[in-house]
């Protein structure tokens, strides 16, 4: 009959995280913060211009993923929650990329030296 798989669990499962695991994730976040700071002080422009920002964003994404998966329990959540998390970033990407496709093509070479 109907799809009831989404209702099957009476309570969202909650026995996956233990205090040591929470502390572990927390330490990852602290290390990430410190890493962000020191990565920002090193001039990475010799790789390509804007490399610093890319590194900073990569670390931020990692930290965000940790918070979402483990602190917000997305890892053990139904598919709908995964989907809404992914969808919101997809729509952000639409907003960023479609706005920038205008700005970046208006006068060529905005990002080039």
């Amino acid at each position: 009959m109907a799809e009831y798989e989404q209702h099957d669990h009476d309570h969202i499962e909650h026995d996956h995280m233990t205090i040591p695991k929470y502390i572990g994730i927390f330490l990852v976040l602290v290390v990430g913060t410190i890493l962000t700071y020191f990565a920002a002080t090193v001039d990475l422009d010799f790789i390509f211009p804007g490399a610093n920002t890319l590194v900073a964003l990569l670390i931020a994404f990692t930290k965000m993923t940790c918070v979402m998966l483990f602190f917000m329990h997305v890892y053990w959540s139904p598919r709908m929650i995964w989907l809404s998390a992914v969808a919101s970033f997809f729509w952000l990407a639409i907003m960023f990329s479609y706005t920038m496709q205008d700005y970046l093509t208006r006068d060529p070479g905005v990002f080039s030296p």
């Binding site: 913060t33 962000t36 700071y37 920002a40 002080t41 090193v42 001039d43 990475l44 422009d45 610093n52 920002t53 900073a56 964003l57 670390i59 931020a60």
Partner: peptide
């Protein structure tokens, strides 16, 4: 934090 506080640090 990185986007506001750290973006020009390497300069």
């Amino acid at each position: 934090f990185p986007l506001l506080y750290l973006l020009g640090r390497h300069f």
